[in-house]
């Protein structure tokens, strides 16, 4: 839930999603859900010559499970806030 919230705060920011098949897609994060499925707008693919079939694609929906990494805009991530929120969530998880 915590990571989901982080992604929600980053909507309308530019991110780069690297998939498990090595395809890297940069675009504007339009939405995210609890599975960390991601909708990207205005996309470009890192190595277009290797993926010519992607050149005409302007937006996409990425299933969360195929994501390896997402590069985030560091200037829009409050790391102190993240650490505090993570400690809080860890506490609630432990009290099972």
């Amino acid at each position: 839930m915590l990571i989901f919230s982080v992604f929600k705060t980053l909507t309308d920011q530019q991110v780069t999603v690297e998939l498990k098949n090595d395809l890297s897609i940069t675009g504007v994060l339009k939405s995210v859900d609890q599975f960390l499925n991601i909708r990207l707008d205005n996309i470009t693919v890192l190595d277009e010559t290797r993926h010519p079939h992607m050149m005409a694609v302007k937006n996409c929906f990425i299933r969360g499970s195929v994501v390896r990494y997402v590069q985030l805009p560091a200037e829009h991530v409050d790391t102190q806030l993240l650490e505090d929120a993570t400690r809080r969530e860890a506490q609630t998880q432990t009290k099972r």
Binding site: V6, L36, T86
Partner: peptide, 22 residues
């Protein structure tokens, strides 16, 4: 997985071991 390693400063994680690193 995939013969990858990394180091980074840990800022967030969850029960799936999703991580946010800088």
């Amino acid at each position: 997985r995939g013969d990858r390693e990394m180091t980074g400063i840990l800022h967030a994680y969850d029960g799936h071991m999703n991580l946010i690193l800088s």
